[in-house]
């Protein structure tokens, strides 16, 4: 233990009295609580067994589609992000230029636009795609969604990976080299274990963003969670359709968030004092 460990940062003194800031704060929190109570009581009052019986199975099917879409895209994106991150860190001008352009395009344009470009854009090149045998793949809306999402998330994941690897001090590389370790061995056994701790939070954020962004596929005729909610709304004109779907997304994100926090606690045990 070094001497710095004994230095303790004291918590700020307890707030006393009722300064204006505190009153405003309490008022705002009350407003939020009222808002929450409002939604809950609305759902209780508007509880409609018919609505539930009629649309719950569709929501569940949609949930399955959403989960499949996000998990497949995340995994494909992770695989694709490795060469992109390699390109970004490469000293080869051409390679790093290409990787930079890729990341620049996919981070700089809305996912909605990318999805439209893949679905309707590639759709207008049917003859060309048929001649190379790719039309069967792009004919299906789900495949188009996965394609666009994987390309998009690969760009973000590549940046996460690059940032995490570069966050490990150079000295680690040099130390490993002086012990005679091969570059790949160094990466696998020394750099990545440290880098992935740094990367976990951003990866978690990316996953959560993907879950929410996946609602976009509803407009290219994929009946995911959002697509089924739209359909339920179209048939019932009942705003409940959207409130329920928001709650399902909320629960999903909350589960993911806790899962990620749990993993973080597990893998940073050795850093705790």
């Amino acid at each position: 233990m070094s001497a710095t460990a004994t230095m303790v940062e004291r918590p700020p003194p307890r707030a006393r009295g009722w300064p204006r800031r505190r009153i405003v704060g309490y008022a705002l929190v009350c407003l939020w609580i009222l808002f929450g109570i409002g939604i809950v009581s609305y759902l209780v009052l508007a509880w409609n067994a018919d609505f539930f019986a009629k649309y719950a199975p569709a929501y569940l099917r949609g949930l399955g589609v959403t989960l499949a879409l996000v998990s497949i895209s995340m995994v494909l994106g992770a695989i694709l992000s490795v060469p992109v991150a390699y390109g970004r860190m490469s000293s080869n001008r051409v390679l790093s230029g290409l990787a930079y352009c890729y990341v620049y395009f996919f981070r700089g344009t809305p996912l909605l636009v990318q999805t439209y470009l893949v679905y309707y854009g590639l759709g207008s090149f049917r003859v060309e795609l048929q001649s190379v045998g790719l039309w069967d793949f792009f004919k299906d809306a789900f495949n188009c969604g996965v394609f666009a999402f994987a390309l998009n998330t690969a760009a973000y994941q590549a940046e996460i990976l690059r940032g995490a690897i570069e966050s490990v001090p150079r000295g680690q590389w040099e130390g490993a080299a002086s012990l005679g370790l091969h570059k790949l061995q160094t990466l696998r056994k020394i750099i990545l274990p440290q880098a992935l701790i740094v990367a976990l939070r951003p990866y978690g954020n990316e996953l959560i963003l993907m879950v929410k962004a996946s609602a976009i596929v509803a407009i290219i005729t994929v009946y995911d969670l959002m697509g089924n909610a739209k359909l339920a709304f179209a048939n019932s004109f009942d705003i409940q359709a959207y409130i329920w779907v928001a709650l399902v997304y909320l629960v999903m994100v909350e589960i993911l968030r806790h899962g990620i926090e749990w993993i973080e606690r597990r893998i940073t045990i050795h850093l705790k004092r």
Partner: peptide, 14 residues
Amino acid sequence: GYPSSPEEQADLAN
């Protein structure tokens, strides 16, 4: 289901 007519028309043409 499509958001509006032009999209469904585009996909029929596709």
